[in-house]
Every structure is written in C-alpha cells, then in structure tokens.
Design a protein around this nucleic acid. Structure first.
Lengths: 150, 150
DNA sequence: TATTGTTATACTCTATAACTATA
DNA sequence: TATAGTTATAGAGTATAACAATA
C-alpha cells in the first residue's frame, strides 16, 4: 500500500483537525508556538547560536533576536558569548525555562488523559497503537540533510 | 490496554513534534491558524454568528471582529445581517475563501506526499493505517456537549 | 438590563531594511 | 567583504475595557 492521492488528502484533513485539537487542549498561555519550540530545542540540544535557532524555527534573525529578548526578560533563557567568535551569541535555557516546559507537559498530559478517558477502550488502544506512526510522521518534519547541496 | 501515564506522556511528546512538523510542511503564508480554522468552519457549516465563531475559535469577540474585518478586506469572507435579530452579524465564506482553502490543501497534500515518499513502504503503510486513530484523537478536540450544564 | 458587536488601546510576534561590530 | 546580531519601523493578531445599538 503506497497511499493513493485520496489517502494523502484524508491524512491532510486529519492533521488539520489534529492541530486544532492540540491547540484547544494546550492553550497558548501567552507563549507562541515558536517560543515554546525554541525552548524545547534549547532543552534538547544545549546552548545554540541565535542565527541557528532562527533557521531551525523558520523565522528571521530579527524575530529571533526579539524572541530571545522576551525569553530572557521572562527568565526562561539567557544570552552568553562565544569564546571563539565575539560576534556570536549563544542562547541557553534556564531552570525557569525547564520548569515551564515540564509544567506545560504536565498540563497537556492531564488534559489529554481526561479526553482519552472518554473514548471506548478499543478506540483508546488504537490511539496508543498509532504512536509509532505519529513519530514517523513527525520525523518527516525534521529538516532534510542538505550537507551535499553545498 | 487503558494507557499508562507514560503512554500519555509519550503521546503528548509525539503530538508536540507532529504540530511542529505540520507547521513546517504548511507554511502560514501570512494567515494565522485562527484565520484558516475560521474559514474551514465557515466552509463546513455555512454562515455563522460572529460571537459563535469567537467562542469556537477560543478568541475574544473583539479579536474575531478584527479577524473578520481582515478576511472581508481580503475577499475571503463577508458580513451579512440576520433577519431575526438586528444585533447579529452572520459571517459567510466567499468563493475566494473556498479557493484559498482548496489551494492550501493541494499544497499540503503535495508536500506531505513528497515527504511520505521518502519513507520505507512499510512505514508509509503504518502511517496511513493510523488515520482512523488520528481522527479519533482529533474528535477529542470537539467542544464537549454542555447542553445539560445550563 | 442583557446581548451583540465595535472601538480604543496596548502588547506580542513577525517581516524587511538599515545599521554595528567582528571576522 | 562577509557574517552575526541588533535597531527601526510597520502590520497581523491578541487581550481588556469602554462603548453603541438592539433585544
């Protein structure tokens, strides 16, 4: 089964509604998707260059400058210099930032569990069984390896 | 299998990454998630009250007033009055709005197919097989029936 | 009085263009 | 000259508070 055009269209429709669901379950609480995604990236990979974060998140350098300024002001991240190159800014997550992510995940898990509990056991099992496929899908979003483009 | 806490946490993590993936695959192109979601709602359900749209999208009435103003200005929606109640504004999608949604779906389907084609056939099949479970999950996002709360 | 929607105002978030400092 | 980042400016998108019109 390679997936017909109709399959892909159905998948697109499902994903659209799924994103809407996640938005409802996980209220923004004053943080943009980009802000949270940037923190998650910093948590997972350690200090990063500001320009690197901008590229990764698909925003411009000025947008990332301002986002980091807000994250710093709110105590979720901090700027540091690079010993190698005085032009570079290395951004790191703070304890407060880690705490924020932990709290968000707790809230999401609690809300999601509440919703899942309303499903018949059979359907709930089907959802959990689909997690590996969800991860495959999510992997697709990783930036492609373009090392040989250059 | 009812789903352990770990299962739920894994699902939350998967969904977070999935949302990031969808954001990458489907660039905003100058429209907010709320704007597109509102148009989709209008396409699916016909003319709606402005206040109803605000509640559904989880934004305030002033925010929806301004969003509808922008949608109207760009030719994607129009305002109409209600014959029953002169206070009410009924918002409808236009041909241009429908065309916009159609185009977005085409682009998404094309991009997604391109990404899916990079997966081994077995994994691709697993993704398509998970669609019913995705739909179950998405259903969870529907506002709960609170008719007997009042 | 309550409901529906708008206006006023302020802040976040984003982009493009112009700039500074370092390589 | 090129690169890393910031500043300046403008518009989208959001909220709260105050308002107007209708029920």
């Amino acid at each position: 089964m390679t997936g017909t055009d109709t399959d892909v269209q159905t998948l697109v429709a499902s994903l659209e509604r799924l994103v809407t669901m996640v938005r409802r379950v996980a209220p923004a609480e004053g943080m943009s998707l980009t802000a949270v995604s940037t923190l998650r990236s910093l948590e997972a990979s350690g200090p990063r260059r500001l320009s690197e974060l901008a590229t990764e998140q698909g925003v411009t350098q000025p947008a990332m400058t301002q986002l980091v300024t807000r994250l710093e002001r709110d105590g979720y991240a901090r700027r540091g210099g690079s010993p190698d190159d005085a032009r570079v800014v290395l951004v790191s997550i703070t304890g407060g930032g880690r705490e924020l992510l932990r709290h968000r995940r707790d809230v999401r898990a609690r809300e999601l569990r509440r919703l899942l509990d309303r499903l018949p056991a059979h359907d709930r099992a089907a959802v959990f069984a689909a997690v590996p496929a969800l991860n495959l899908l999510a992997e697709l979003g990783q930036p492609e390896d373009r090392s040989h483009d250059r």
